[in-house]
Design a protein around this nucleic acid. Structure first.
Length: 585
RNA sequence: AGGGGAGUCGCCAAGCUGGUUAAGGCACAGGGUUUUGAUCCCUGCAUGCGAAGGUUCGAAUCCUUCCUCCCCUGCCA
């Protein structure tokens, strides 16, 4: 099936791996009972109808950001394209940081991107915390096999004895404790007889391994903390390194895709699965971990810590501030799910560290917004235009297409009168070279209306242009036979001062000035002080019945979305992106 | 003697079981269409694949050495 996609979607190393795995019939006998579980739960189950299984495994300890979008889109499209399934699994093994608010937001964001993990056949929404019994069981399998032990060293001692990057570690004095003793202590850990940090369960591998992750990693710790899902049932919690491979195996994941920093972890991931399969706790085929490089975007900060700081120190207005690179922020900004997908297609998936130009992201959004958005007229920086030879009691109806490339979207009417608002940038007293908008003596077309010629202008007390005067050519009405009798290069938009509505505009710009804000000692020093500009503007009358979330292109300006702050009296628009502008000043 | 990764056009990225002129996208530059200086359409854009050697009729693809960058010493994920 990837053959069909080769023309549209570029291939990547993960697709190649899956192709090979499928050719090798690796999953031909993989069973799936419909519910995650160890070998005994799947033993008599039918062959899995899903050709592959992937998963998106967020920890519910924050809001999803653009980097997560890359992972979500990767995992879900892989599942779609290869006739598989993608699970949404909350990796909630650390009760201290996680909560239900994040769970809800993450589910919303995945849905918003357009992905479903549940349908009439399967509900693939899972929680690692629902596997705690299995993990406890798995830990005992390792203990019984002499492959795990309870260590009473302090955290400090363990750290010191781990050695360094270039020196081997030292064995724990508890490393050769009997299986019985380990079983007893682990049981006591579970039943709450010890304080946080008093002891820890460790895998017994090799304290001299050059890979530090294999120097007897901790796999269970004591935390007397209530868990958002399991409440007070547990006071011991598995570590990510131990829990994750088990979660994948229980769910029969075939391809466990994560970012590059987990590469060193892969040997332990494989160790856990191999051992648990040896003792029949898990059955083959086992999941395989594959790593790709995480998303880096110029002018954007994506570290969870920094995002939290931006919100908590009020440098932005919350997680869904349209300037935040969160998915809730993106939604409010007007960035489109289809734009995210196009963007991901464009940047590809590889293992090399890369920084993508923000422009690539923004341009992907422009491409889908151009397609998706109907047009409206708005005057953002108004000055008055008076048509001297126009009857002041006359209202001329102008027919305006809703989308120039999509006639099926229909037309609407806009009223033209003697007194209009036009954009102050569309008039110059002394125009720069090649300027073809309005200036004294020049002709332009009032878009969808008449050709006019500038006759005069008036300044206000500050010396700024306040009013422009012109005459119009009645025979040049757009859509009529003689409309092109007078040729003009320029074409400007306008709104009747009588028939227009005042709205509020929030023009957003990038939050950080530098390409890489992370290079600053304090990234906050790089914040763009003018990343938001709020102003009042005029919009055509047809705007009055819009709903929150509706998006438009304001012709010759950019893409705008109706903000949730909108209420009956005041319509608020957020600027998603400007139009491309090749007319450089 | 730490280990694990990565280096192909300004930014991404195919190709890498060696074989005609090194895909494609974005950006950029020209041209065309256009009642958005938007969109759209055409054209151009690496004798070069981190560097140097080597093997070969032939190397981005194989070998050797070197250079640069990223990740790893949480009872975080």
């Amino acid at each position: 099936m990837s053959n069909e996609n080769k023309n549209t979607v570029p291939t990547n190393f993960i697709r190649n791996i899956i192709d090979k795995n499928l050719e090798a019939n690796l999953y031909a006998e993989k069973k799936w009972s419909g519910q995650p579980g160890p070998s005994y739960a799947h033993k008599d189950a039918p062959i899995d109808t899903a050709k592959i299984r992937t998963r998106f495994p967020p920890e519910p300890n924050g809001y999803l950001h653009f980097g997560h979008a890359k992972s979500i889109i990767l995992n879900f499209t892989l599942a779609q394209d290869f006739n598989g399934r993608c699970h949404l699994r909350f990796d909630d093994t650390n009760p201290e940081k996680e909560n239900e608010e994040y769970v809800k937001s993450i589910i919303d964001s995945v849905h918003w991107l357009g992905y479903k993990f549940e349908d009439e056949h399967e509900n693939n929404l899972y929680y690692a915390s629902n596997y705690f019994d299995y993990m406890y069981e798995a830990a005992k399998v390792l203990i019984n096999a002499g492959l795990a032990y309870v260590d009473k060293q302090t955290a400090e001692e363990i750290r010191i004895n781990r050695g360094t990057l270039i020196e081997a570690g030292k064995d724990s004095p508890f490393r050769d404790q009997s299986v019985e003793e380990n079983l007893k202590l682990f049981e006591e850990m579970k039943s709450g007889q010890y304080q946080d940090g008093e002891m820890v369960l460790r895998a017994k591998i090799n304290m001299a391994s050059p890979n530090i992750n294999l120097r007897d990693p901790a796999i269970y710790r004591i935390r007397h903390v209530s868990h958002h899902n399991t409440g007070n049932k547990w006071c011991i919690y598995p570590m990510y390194t131990f829990a994750h491979p088990i979660e994948d195996a229980l769910e029969k994941i075939t391809h466990s895709i994560c970012t590059l920093e987990f590469e060193d972890q892969r040997p332990f991931y494989e160790w856990v699965l191999k051992k648990l399969a040896e003792f029949d706790f898990l059955e083959k085929p086992l999941p395989k971990q594959h790593e790709f490089s995480r998303l880096n975007l110029s002018h954007v900060v994506l570290s969870k810590r920094k995002l939290i700081q931006l919100v908590e120190e009020n440098h932005v207005n919350g997680w869904d501030d349209p300037r935040m690179p969160t998915l809730v922020g993106a939604k409010r900004r007007g960035y489109h799910p289809k734009g995210f997908k196009l963007f991901m297609d464009r940047i590809g998936v590889s293992k090399s560290d890369s920084v993508i130009d923000y422009q690539t992201f923004e341009d992907s959004m422009r491409e889908v917004l151009n397609e998706e958005c109907n047009r409206k007229i708005a005057v953002l920086n108004p000055i008055k235009l008076i048509i001297e030879n126009f009857d002041e009691n006359h209202t001329e109806i102008c027919t305006v297409p809703n989308h120039p490339q999509k006639p099926e979207e229909g037309t609407r009417e806009v009223k033209l009168t003697k007194e209009l608002w036009i954009e102050s940038e569309d008039f110059e007293i002394n125009p720069p070279p090649k300027y073809f908008r309005l200036f004294p003596g020049n002709k332009v077309r009032l878009r969808y209306g008449f050709v006019i010629e500038c006759t005069d202008y008036k300044l206000n007390d500050n010396g700024e242009v306040s009013t422009v005067f012109c005459k119009y050519f009645p025979e040049t009405k757009s859509g009529t036979a003689g409309s092109d009798a007078v040729k003009v290069k320029g074409n400007i938009h306008w709104l009747s001062t009588k028939f227009s509505k005042q709205v509020t505009i929030r023009n957003y710009d990038r939050l950080f000035l530098s390409e890489n804000p992370n290079e600053f000692d304090n990234f906050l020093d790089d914040i763009n002080k003018s990343s938001i500009e709020t102003k009042s503007a005029y919009c055509e009358e047809s705007i009055s019945d819009v709903q929150t979330g509706e998006q438009f292109q304001f012709e010759r300006h950019g893409y705008y979305i109706v903000d949730p702050d909108t209420d009956g009296d005041e319509i608020i628009f957020n600027r998603t992106a400007t139009l491309r502008d090749t007319w450089q000043k």
